[in-house]
Amino acid sequence: MERRATFRAPLLPWLLVLPQMLIVFVFFYWPTGEALHWAFTLEQPWGGGRQWVGWQNFIDIFGSGHYWNSVRVSLIYAFGTSGLAILIALTMALFIDREVKGSRGWRIALIWPYAIAAPAIGIIFRFVFDPRAGVLSVLNAIIPAAWDPLLNGTHAMLMLIFAGAWQLVAYNFVFFLAGLQSIPKPLTEAAAMDGAGPVRRMWDIQIPLLAPTFFFLVIINLTDSFTNSFGLVDVMTKGGPARATDIMVYKIYSDGFQGLDYSGAAAQSIILMLLVIGLTFFQFRFVERKMRYR
């Protein structure tokens, strides 16, 4: 028989959830409503209210070459970061899963990077990949200008992808390690008794059983790359050079707060929000329900 919590005072439950409801309303629903209103209006040049323009802001965005460049750059960054982070995290989890001396300490150490704020990570990697004093400055001493993320857009994107992947590795590692530890040990032990080596057991047993975790992390990593990469871009490249790292979330900031195009920035934020909602819907509709252990 299911027991349900009861309260003598009927207002007490509402008072308990009121702070959380206020936080959700003030920091989510209210800004979302304002962004929707801004996206379909146009601020007057010298103030004095807004003018309803309908879909004109979206038409201008989809007709802008700079916006489609930010979409292309965002896709490169998202898939590059997600792929690299998942590959590194899976490799580490497969090695750490083995009970060897000091493995517990390594597990804790590999989780710590996720607690570091994005601006701090950006500063660290900016110094690490500095063309004058970073780790690749030796290459520049041999071949001048072989590595210069300040002037080369491809180098800047690679530097940004490495920093973003490093930030996500710890998160992915936790889930992969939990997935590996949930695999029944008799399966791998039986395969070992049949003569299957570590690589064969990994490809035939462990990785197939990690499929639900893998697809879950793909969606989570892509969503994070589209929405939580502002700190890295702002500290490391500021969208440059020549818009080579001007991802969608940073373009919203630069157009709205630097270019003062609030209506256009609001319309871009609505498009980005719909993209994230689409990824979330895909995750719950297909990944969560279709991916099951067999």
Rank of each mutant, 00 (worst) to 15 (best):
residue 287 V to M: 12
residue 60 D to C: 07
residue 72 R to M: 04
residue 141 A to F: 01
residue 261 D to F: 08
residue 26 V to N: 10
residue 86 I to W: 00
residue 37 H to T: 13
residue 278 G to D: 01
residue 72 R to G: 15
residue 187 L to T: 10
residue 169 V to F: 05
residue 236 M to A: 07
residue 199 V to T: 12
residue 76 I to A: 11
residue 188 T to W: 08
residue 271 I to K: 03
residue 189 E to D: 12
residue 51 Q to N: 13
residue 228 N to V: 00
residue 64 S to R: 09
residue 100 V to C: 06
residue 9 A to V: 06
residue 83 G to Y: 09
residue 188 T to N: 15
residue 215 F to K: 09
residue 33 G to Q: 03
residue 84 L to R: 02
residue 194 D to W: 09
residue 82 S to C: 15
residue 226 F to H: 04
residue 66 H to G: 11
residue 55 W to D: 11
residue 287 V to W: 12
residue 172 N to K: 08
residue 94 L to V: 11
residue 91 T to C: 03
residue 162 F to A: 13
residue 207 I to H: 05
residue 283 Q to H: 15
residue 117 A to G: 06
residue 164 G to D: 10
residue 61 I to H: 10
residue 253 Y to W: 15
residue 165 A to V: 10
residue 122 G to R: 05
residue 30 W to M: 14
residue 100 V to H: 12
residue 280 T to K: 03
residue 26 V to S: 13
residue 106 W to K: 01
residue 16 L to V: 13
residue 105 G to N: 00
residue 229 S to Y: 08
residue 178 A to R: 07
residue 32 T to L: 15
residue 142 I to E: 00
residue 109 A to T: 01
residue 127 F to N: 02
residue 191 A to M: 09
residue 61 I to N: 04
residue 265 A to N: 12
residue 103 S to T: 12
residue 162 F to H: 05
residue 16 L to F: 07
residue 210 L to M: 13
residue 291 M to S: 05
residue 34 E to I: 11
residue 77 Y to E: 04
residue 166 W to Y: 12
residue 278 G to N: 00
residue 178 A to T: 14
residue 15 L to W: 00
residue 175 F to P: 03
residue 191 A to I: 12
residue 25 F to Q: 02
residue 182 S to F: 02
residue 176 F to E: 02
residue 66 H to F: 11
residue 61 I to R: 07
residue 252 I to K: 09
residue 185 K to R: 14
residue 251 K to W: 10
residue 279 L to R: 00
residue 74 S to E: 02
residue 78 A to C: 01
residue 228 N to C: 00
residue 272 L to R: 00
residue 202 M to Q: 06
residue 25 F to E: 03
residue 176 F to Y: 14
residue 160 L to A: 04
residue 157 M to T: 08
residue 146 A to P: 07
residue 169 V to P: 04
